[in-house]
Design a protein around this nucleic acid. Structure first.
Lengths: 218, 218
DNA sequence: TAGATTGTTAATCGATTAACAATC
DNA sequence: TAGATTGTTAATCGATTAACAATC
């Protein structure tokens, strides 16, 4: 539901994997809270919301937590992603190996000129026409849009029509699905780098604008 | 201050530019609210917080709003950015032209082997050693980190030491400044694509996990 | 003037936190 | 047992919204 909540879940999960690797077996709401920067109360609330069980005296069992969180975060199912548009951003994603540790796998790229794409990875790249059949045949649920902004919304429609239910959009347009046939089914996240930079500039430049002329005019 | 608030400001600004281009002169809290998906009350609240003046009967003057928002968002000052690490993501940013419309300009890239970098843009690329002097000489305040995760935190330190006050990090590690000498001065935004994808998978996979076994056990 | 819209105050809502009883 | 930690309830906090007086 809540964005912050889900973000915390993935953080818990990552941290728990690390603790497990370190040989830990149990952990307290306390430790987790410190590590990800929230209060222990919130950790307990989150776990209780998810029915993750703890022991009144012995804290939480890491194995149990990891297992349940993996399930909740969908890691028991294949997490296959396709990338539409194999320009610099698209190929950067395909080359990036860090996903595997999260169980996420980029299984295909699509481009207008697949023969021109120079990717270092071994992710296969197909022509645009194969998009729909690939999605259906492989039951793909999540796709990345890395095409120019002018194409983005067209691609969004094609993805949704083909059955995609989650979209990560890197094109510098804010995509949202306004059609009647996808209302609560499809989730779209926009990564808008220009917006991020603007945000940053705002914070860097002007802490002091708000309330600047707060001194009463007479 | 608040992330959502700043995000709304940039959205207002972008929308107002479009309306202006369309020939509009005034706009009502109502219109703006509809367009960016918030209540008119919140629009008025935001504007009043920023001392953006409206007319009780005639709504808001677009020129005034645009001018003041530009100032608040720092557009009256140069918005120069450097990119550290000129791999695929770094060069993708340098090639991307969409920033200019927001007044953001990428003025330099830095890489260990500047001679190997193949960028299509005409942003100059310098060797790493030049990083500090460039930042100081050009008074750069915002930098993008697009280096491998193993280097990211080192680069963060160098940037902060050289005077950078806003960092956009694309390396797949969560950077935060824990040093004593930068507490409220430096803002770091992490763009973590793996995390975004996980978030997406969570939403796509499991709406139904929460409350799943809510039915009382006896 | 009558009608519409701002600016602001008070009410609402949801998320986080504090506190504490239950219990290992 | 005594001590510590969970699970949960009630209090707090901040952001959003509703409502409305001021006024163009």
């Amino acid at each position: 539901m809540n964005k912050d909540f889900i973000l915390r879940l993935t953080k818990y999960k990552r941290l728990l994997y690390k603790l497990k690797a370190l040989g830990f077996e149990r952990v307290f709401s306390n430790n987790l809270g410190d590590a990800i920067g929230v209060t222990p109360a919130l950790v307990r609330k989150d776990f209780s919301t998810l029915n993750l069980p703890g022991n009144k005296r012995g804290g939480y069992n890491i194995d149990t937590l990891v297992e349940k969180l993996d399930k909740i975060l969908g890691r028991d199912r294949p997490q296959q992603v396709i990338v539409v548009g194999c320009g610099r951003i698209g190929t950067a994603l395909m080359d990036y190996s860090g996903f595997n540790t999260d169980g996420i796998e980029i299984v295909a790229g699509f481009d207008l000129q697949p023969e021109n794409v120079k990717a270092g990875s071994n992710v296969p790249i197909y022509p645009m026409e194969k998009l729909e059949t690939f999605i259906k045949e492989h039951d793909i649920l999540v796709g990345v849009i890395a095409v120019p902004d002018t194409e983005a919304s067209k691609i969004m429609d094609r993805l949704i029509d083909a059955g995609i239910r989650g979209i990560l959009n890197f094109a510098p347009v804010e995509l949202k699905c306004t059609r009647t046939d996808c209302p609560n089914n499809t989730t779209i996240h926009n990564v808008n780098i220009a917006l991020e930079l603007e945000h940053l500039f705002y914070q860097v430049n002007s802490q002091d604008f708000i309330n600047e002329d707060d001194k009463e005019a007479d």
